[in-house]
Design a protein around this nucleic acid. Structure first.
Length: 436
RNA sequence: GCAGGGGUUCCCGAGUGGCCAAAGGGAUCAGACUGUAAAUCUGACGCGAAAGCUUCGGUGGUUCGAAUCCACCCCCCUGCACCA
């Protein structure tokens, strides 16, 4: 079967998902003709992908849904080198075994978002170490290097700040990154007739390099498309929380935190993000926006976004867990939580820790609560205590209780004899379980 | 190498002998108001429950007393030179 959705590019445009593309109309017509093969690369620079990777990843999914064949490339080779694009300083190299370990995990993550069977246009995952790892230097210099012009590379905006900046510079290693990525495209073009590369807008230079190489080596015409860098209306960096990046790995960012992250989206950004991070149609999103504009008070958009995005990344179960905790923490009363509910909360991703009864003696609350990660410094706990902003099982404690930790966490005051739910401020919750 | 400028608490940035744990702004956290929003206002913001303790590139020194003065060292920036 070879039917494709000819409106794909038009839809991506409407969603604001296209930053740049080669041959505008030409590419659109080319994609409308039939199934094409495209790829997007993900370098293993950490043991998990984060929110910034999600947009291009979902674009891959969108292409597959429209009938095309996506390839997710894991950069086992490029990850060993480090992409200098728009980076201020040279990066620290990671050891080959670390990168290989990360590459495995990223391969798994990426695989969640594309379908490998049960469809006419199955996806593929490849690792560029397969071909780059075997290449020898002389072949590289003769077959690849010869096609790249130093003059052009130096003029690229993506490396300019590194070249101009005094005291930073760029090593030959990172400078060569673009050639490796170019090789990937040319190789995938030969192997799988891959003719389109998508990526973040910072990848434009590298993508164009690949297009050139594919033309010179394979006499093939290929295309490139980039998605915009995600920005927030207030100018702060997207995808960060107090505790750092929002990861896709549930071990690193729990579905609950993930869900909460989206719930906190600013009104000014939420409709844009619905276009980027969900598969709701443009019309559905417009309808939500219209309803929100109509209604007084709290918009529904954040809730929809949180629900859709969490389901995409963590599945129905992850979403259910996140909602369970949210419900318990922000609307339900503690009395409604059963013993098994409390047990479940920790498993569902609510931050939790164990308490040793003996260790509470002479331990100030400030110390305990900052050590368990509820606050960055005990100073913050102190401030909260002074404002009745710390609740233990629903009861406020104050600075006077600071040195009475053992009493506050006495077994007879625990829920079901062992649980304490501590709330600090409006948003931070932590579950303690007594162990003796 | 020479000359000049500089390194202050998360960031920017004041501070040139005591009144300095160090102005101001940003970021962050909490409170009020709210929609678990934004804006605004309030408070906190080196560590510590407190007593108190530890900071101003490093090491020594002068002094009753140093972020502030002196010596040496390290690093960054800007010119010039050297090397091409």
């Amino acid at each position: 079967m070879s039917t494709v959705d000819g409106n794909l590019i038009q839809e991506l445009r409407e969603r604001g998902l296209i930053a740049q593309m080669t041959g505008e109309d030409e590419l659109e017509a080319y994609l409308a003709e039939g199934p094409r093969t495209l790829y997007c690369g993900f370098d293993p620079t950490a043991d998990s992908l984060h929110l910034g990777h999600l947009v291009p990843l979902l674009v891959l999914t969108r292409f597959q849904n429209a009938g095309h064949n996506p390839i997710a490339l894991v950069g086992g080779a490029t990850g060993l080198i480090g992409d200098p694009s728009f980076k201020a300083a040279e990066r620290q190299l990671n050891t080959p075994d670390i990168v290989a370990g990360w590459a495995d995990r990223i391969r798994n993550q990426v695989s969640q978002f594309i379908k490998f069977e049960g469809v006419d246009n199955p996806a593929r995952v490849v690792n560029n170490l397969e071909w780059a790892g075997e290449m020898n230097v002389l072949d590289f210099l003769r077959d690849v290097g010869k096609h790249f012009s130093i003059n052009n590379m130096i003029n690229k905006e993506s490396v300019q700040q590194r070249l101009q900046r005094e005291g930073s510079g760029i090593s030959f290693t990172e400078f060569s990154y673009a050639l490796l990525q170019g090789m990937d495209f040319a190789e995938l073009n030969r192997r799988y007739d891959c003719t389109l590369q998508v990526g973040g807008s910072d990848q434009w230079g590298n993508i164009v390099g690949g297009i050139d190489l594919a033309r010179r080596q394979n006499k093939a015409q290929t295309f490139g498309l980039t998605v915009p860098l995600i920005t927030k209306a207030d100018g702060t960096k997207f995808g960060k929380t107090e505790s750092g990046a929002v990861w896709l790995d549930p071990q690193k960012t729990s579905p609950y935190s993930f869900y909460q992250f989206w719930l906190g989206t600013a009104d000014a950004d939420v409709y844009k993000f619905l276009h980027y991070f969900t598969f709701l149609s443009v019309e559905e999103i417009a309808k939500i926006q219209a309803e929100d504009a109509e209604a007084e008070g709290r918009p529904q958009a954040q809730g929809v976004l949180a629900r859709e995005a969490t389901r995409l990344v963590h599945g129905e179960e992850g979403l259910a867990a996140a909602q369970r905790i949210t419900e318990a923490m922000f609307s339900g009363s503690l009395a409604e939580l059963g013993e098994s509910d409390l047990e479940q909360l920790a498993q569902d991703g609510l931050p939790s820790s164990e308490l040793m009864t003996e260790s509470l003696i002479d331990k100030p609350l400030t110390g305990l609560l900052s050590e368990c990660g509820m606050a960055k410094a005990s100073r913050e706990v102190k401030d909260a205590l002074g404002r009745n902003a710390v609740l233990i099982n629903g009861d406020a404690v104050s600075m006077d209780d600071n040195m009475r930790t053992a009493e506050c966490f006495a077994p007879e005051r625990a829920l079901f004899g062992r649980f304490f739910l501590v709330k600090l401020g409006k948003k931070k919750n932590h579950l303690f379980e007594l162990k003796s």
